[in-house]
């Protein structure tokens, strides 16, 4: 099972747990409907597009309404701490929530109770809280952008709002240097997919791959295109690709979807997500050897 956890921007929405179903332009989880917009909705949508294409089980999600006050986030932490061992997902993807170092440490302890250790992926504030709590190295994949890699590299910052000025002002060429610093400072997951003008896949401080084509500068402006990368990585990891392979393909697919959508800075993320099936159809077999056989909805590896 792939479990995705995060808050959604619907005030007062109760915690919902269930298999994700697409309903028109929205997602349904248990009896709740959420939009496929920036944040957890975009991440889940990208993961669902991937599992649907590959004929895999749809993601299970645990979501809760939180517009920033933190009440929903606390419910979410509590649910995960109490239930993650029983659920024992193969992939656990954590996303938006109010960062809380203490609750994050409790969750990491609870994960130790899983039958088999899940692949743990974090983006957004779940990545912030993991780094701030000093438990980043217990995570398998982080998906920071160029600013967030500076945050991970700054040993004193507990939130990107406090990163040192000289780190923020660094350019894309310094990503490898910052990633090495993040690893040395114990602020990085085992694998980093750093999103930017050039996407870097970095393991233990070493650059394994870069992805720069197709060049789509507009994607940086589009809210949710980082979330979709994380959703793709999670689903491709669930499809049993190696994390670095999943990261490279996710970066390529996101860029290609932007190209297919003819993205401008005004494009909405749902228009990018809508392109994933076409991108997979045209490129996934070539990129990964994960080739859709067709007919029975199953996937196969050639």
């Amino acid at each position: 099972m792939m479990l995705i956890a995060g808050t959604v921007p619907i005030k007062g929405m109760p915690l919902a747990v269930g298999r994700v179903v697409r309903e028109g332009e929205a997602l349904a989880i248990d009896s709740q409907r959420i939009p496929c917009t920036q944040g957890t909705g975009a991440m889940i949508s990208a993961a669902l597009a991937t599992t649907a294409y590959l004929g895999l089980e749809a993601p299970r999600a645990v979501i809760v309404g939180d517009v920033g006050e933190g009440r929903g986030s606390r419910e979410l932490y509590r649910y995960l701490v109490d239930n993650v061992a029983g659920l024992s997902p193969q992939v656990l993807a954590l996303h938006y929530w109010l960062p809380d170092m203490s609750q994050t440490r409790q969750l990491c302890e609870a994960v130790e109770g899983c039958k088999e250790r899940p692949v743990i992926i974090a983006d957004a504030a779940s990545m912030y809280s993991a780094k701030a709590a000093g438990v980043a190295e217990g995570f398998d994949i982080f998906t920071p952008d160029a600013t967030e890699i500076a945050f991970l590299a700054d040993p004193n910052a507990t939130h990107p709002a406090y990163i040192a000025r000289h780190l923020f002002e660094s350019d894309v060429d310094r990503v490898p240097e910052l990633a090495r610093a993040a690893c040395e400072n114990h602020g990085a997951a085992k694998l980093l997919l750093v999103k930017g003008a050039v996407d870097y896949v970095i393991k233990d401080g070493d650059v394994l791959a870069t992805v720069a084509e197709p060049s789509m500068p507009a994607l940086e402006a589009i809210g949710g295109t980082g979330d979709t990368v994380t959703g793709l990585v999670a689903a491709l990891t669930y499809a049993e690709l190696e994390p670095q392979e999943a990261a490279i393909i996710a970066a390529r697919a996101n860029r290609m979807a932007g190209k297919y959508a003819q993205a401008t800075p005004a494009t909405k993320v749902k228009d990018i997500i809508a392109q994933f099936p076409s991108v997979f159809k045209d490129y996934l077999c070539q990129w990964s050897n994960v080739c859709y056989i067709g007919g029975d909805g199953k996937d196969g590896r050639s």
């Binding site: 921007p9 504030a125 402006a221 980082g226």
Partner: peptide, 11 residues
Amino acid sequence: NVSGGGCPDIP
């Protein structure tokens, strides 16, 4: 568009 961030009030 608004992009970036990770806290729950951003969406």
